[in-house]
Design a protein around this nucleic acid. Structure first.
Lengths: 216, 216, 216, 216
DNA sequence: TATGAATGAGTCTTCATTCAT
DNA sequence: CATGAATGAAGACTCATTCAT
């Protein structure tokens, strides 16, 4: 009868500050609810309730549940990107050594993922997201790899030749492991500090070794 | 009136072979359906249909949808474990060098995750699994780390001191990266071969470096 | 998430007699509910309740509310068609005069519309019916005009030249007036008998006049 | 908490001209919206938007959606009545023959219904109108029949005895057929001109025949 | 044991209406 | 008087689960 699934953006960003606050409130509530219940069981009513608004208001700002998920993911992508650039700028300015730089990066990402460890995966794996979001995600990863490659070029310790490939591996590794560790912070075989150290060591030795040591 | 969430085991291991086949059929169907539609949209009716049994029969063998998810996850854990041990045995027998061994391991895991790349995450993140499953999962990882540590001890190239920690890092890294790569095989910045090579290189250089190169 | 609005037929005519009864029960209930509340206010829950089945059962047989409306309309078209042919056959067999034939026809239609006077209009005007239903409706009217033309040919009293046009006018007139009268049976300016008589007279004098009496 | 269904009149005839224009604008917008979307899907927000006023303003002038429908219907009744009297006056003045008079009448009504063919039915069949509106409708029809009877008396060609009954039949016939035809102007078995001619012929022969030609 | 029709709690979403500004 | 953000009751529809056959 009606035409669902059209725009996935807030209908009209109804202009001002009140709305900004409301939208943010809904998104934060959604993040909590999805984190706690999963996507399917994270009902829009629960989100609205947690956000302290009526269900009607929620739908004033988001045309569908899916739109909320998309907004959440885009927010996450933006935040990750922001963190990365901030870190890169900081590193360029501070001129620390490679190990220190990696340590800083790993710590930052671990911190970031410790907030809502499960959210991304819930969003990524259980939501039938429109393709453009997946594209955006891949694009963001590609961009991150490139950015990182640019930074790595500045370190004399780095011996790898294909810096973009190396950047990709580093980004993926940090993202994945950091995320995994954050998901089960307590019951781990290894302490947080040790984990960071080992990871940094791995990355450092990888970046500073010149090539596959020997043929298989 | 409803009786959700009771036992999560197959009611009675219903005697013998006929049932064995049926249970397997249902699990395989569930794997396909969850992979394709996600957990929430993977309806029990769809699973039953794909398995070629009636919905009634499905509920003869599994008391709830959740029980199917749990069984699937346990099956996956067992399989991973099996693969690991097989590989370890093979490595012990063949006496290859470290790099070759790692290459074999990485390739095997990548292969394994390429089958149903999304299934685990769907199961892990969207199902409110009973805690004992999470425990089992962590336990399995711990065991894997130990097993790997045992193997690593046999290689003279390995210089790491805390082998269990190293085993943990290796297991996690391979598991994560392999999984990530398998999820988006096409649109990657790096080829499959390069990916494997880089990953192996990273692991090798990590394992064969004696310690953090320098203090931070 | 799912794909609504596909088929508008009962999903699978689930085979047997029980279903036949259920489908009929639902349709009858729907007819009553739509008649009483209008299309929009005729909720599927109300229909199910009136039919004595659960809402789930209703959706086992009809994929959407619209499908129910369509089925109802198709049923009506079929019934009208059936009535018309029955009447034609009867008239051909009985060899009554034109007036008697018309009287019989008008009475029959009036009877038929007295059952649920508003239903058709509700279905026609408020439901966003798929186009093929509208086509079917027009087609049915065209066929009725033709059928009637065939019958009129048998009456010597009929002087009209364009029998199909005449058939069309008669069908439309009877359908419309009969319907209107049935809608407000009580509070009419004219009695039911008089109404039928006048209508018959009008039709008779129309059919038996040779042409426009005079130029305008 | 809700206050549905209270008064159905504009709250206060809010003074003068500005309001007059606003009310008219809303009604016209409502007519378009109902015609295009049906009653249920014709939302008050859409009406307000089309009228170029805020939803709040709409509710300043109409206490409910239903009140708009009622006002629309009353407007329609008044207009029909106006047309009829205009026509009668014209006919009395011009002294045309019966056929010409009928032709004029039919043409006028056809024209009128061609504007928003579906609106009336939507209003009539899908809105749970308060009874007094139905009363008013019937009353208007009765009055029309009487008015028409008065006119018919002036024509020597008319032989019918019960002029009021005849007036009723004529009014109903013209109203119904004209409306039906207007609703599906394109796909008709008969052209517009032919339709008018046939209808006029039918009415003329009816009015000028003295009585049921023969007993049944 | 297998079947599949029936169930109904629970979901997302809409929209008439209110009221603070 | 006008505005439009907020409200929440209510509706269409889904799907895990049961149970009579």
């Amino acid at each position: 009868m009606t035409a669902h699934k059209q725009r996935l953006e807030p209908r009209k960003p109804p202009v001002q500050k009140r709305s900004r606050a409301t939208v943010d409130g809904i998104l934060s509530a959604a993040a909590q609810v999805f984190e706690a219940h999963g996507y399917a069981a994270g009902t829009t009513n629960r989100i609205a309730e947690r956000a302290g608004v009526s269900i009607g208001t929620l739908y004033q700002y988001f045309p569908s549940k899916e739109a909320i998920a998309v907004a959440l993911l885009e927010r996450h992508i933006a935040e990750t990107d922001h963190r990365l650039h901030e870190w890169v700028d900081h590193m360029v300015a501070e001129q620390h050594g490679l190990r220190a730089a990696l340590h800083d990066y790993v710590t930052g990402m671990l911190e970031m993922h410790s907030e809502r460890p499960k959210l991304q995966h819930i969003l990524l794996e259980d939501t039938p997201l429109p393709d453009r979001v997946h594209q955006a995600l891949l694009e963001a990863e590609r961009a991150a790899a490139k950015t990182l490659a640019g930074l790595l070029r500045l370190y004399s310790e780095v011996r790898r030749v294909h810096l973009e490939q190396a950047g990709f591996v580093v980004v993926q590794t940090v993202e994945s492991l950091t995320h995994r560790f954050a998901a089960h912070p307590d019951q781990q075989i290894i302490s947080r500090t040790s984990f960071v150290d080992e990871l940094v060591t791995m990355l450092e030795s990888y970046l500073s070794c010149s090539a596959p040591r020997d043929r298989r």
